[in-house]
């Protein structure tokens, strides 16, 4: 599903060059649930952004589903993100002026899905995260755990093959964090969705199939 060959990412500002990632070799199979751990600043988010086509590596090859994607033109990569990838962020990133329903359907709007089908998919996604009763709520009327579940519904509404989660439980207490983890586990189990999750929580990481450890931009065993 995912194959990284010798990926390197360097950030250049006027004076300083930061090597955020180097010599990354990585294979993730379809249906795997992988977590990435490592100290702050070691490059976890950078790696996730490259996996999610939000950022381009400075060097190396990235094959997604056997297709080289590291040099896709921006329109194509937007399309790929829309169709194949779902994102979950630590701070949810819901649009505060839209209700749950309207937030969740956005990926489908960019895909040009018709209204009927959109309603059906949104209802299905909200059902998965057990928020069917909250469709008309606005984000500020929901708890943090509920907001993250809305964000998960938005990530999975288009049935992506790959789910990327950057510290999805980072802003939640352990109870709500467990709820979110349970949903991710279910998705992985029921739909064989490939999941890559960055976490600082050893306890959550243990629930996944494999743990990748990053240190100073390198993968360590």
């Amino acid at each position: 599903m995912i194959e990284l060959n010798d990926i390197e990412k360097a950030y250049r500002t006027e004076r300083i060059e930061t090597i955020a990632l180097q010599s990354i070799q990585l294979k993730i199979h379809k249906g795997q649930f992988v977590s990435i751990m490592g100290p702050s600043g070691c490059g976890k988010s950078t790696l996730l952004n490259i996996l999610g086509l939000l950022d381009k590596p400075s060097k190396g090859n990235y094959l997604l589903d056997g297709q080289a994607v590291n040099q896709l033109p921006s329109k194509k990569s937007a399309q790929t993100r829309n169709q194949k990838i779902g994102f979950i962020f630590q701070s949810f990133h819901l649009i505060p002026d839209l209700n749950v329903m309207d937030n969740v359907e956005i990926p489908l709007l960019y895909r040009g899905v018709g209204r009927q089908e959109r309603m059906r998919l949104v209802a299905e996604a909200l059902d998965r995260v057990q928020l069917s009763a909250r469709v008309h709520h606005y984000p500020n009327q929901l708890s943090g755990g509920q907001q993250q579940r809305v964000a998960i519904a938005r990530a999975i509404v288009g049935k992506p093959e790959l789910l990327l989660a950057d510290e999805p439980t980072g802003n939640l207490d352990s109870h709500m964090g467990n709820e979110v983890m349970d949903i991710l586990k279910e998705l992985n189990r029921d739909h064989q969705t490939t999941i890559v999750m960055v976490t600082h929580d050893e306890h959550q990481a243990k629930k996944t199939d494999a743990i990748l450890r990053l240190f100073d931009g390198r993968l360590v065993a």
Binding site: Q79, R81, I106, Y110
Partner: peptide
């Protein structure tokens, strides 16, 4: 900025 970044992450192109 966040909203626009998010929209791009979930499928909006620059033109969108």
């Amino acid at each position: 900025v966040q909203e626009i970044g998010l929209r791009q992450a979930i499928g909006a192109s620059k033109v969108d």
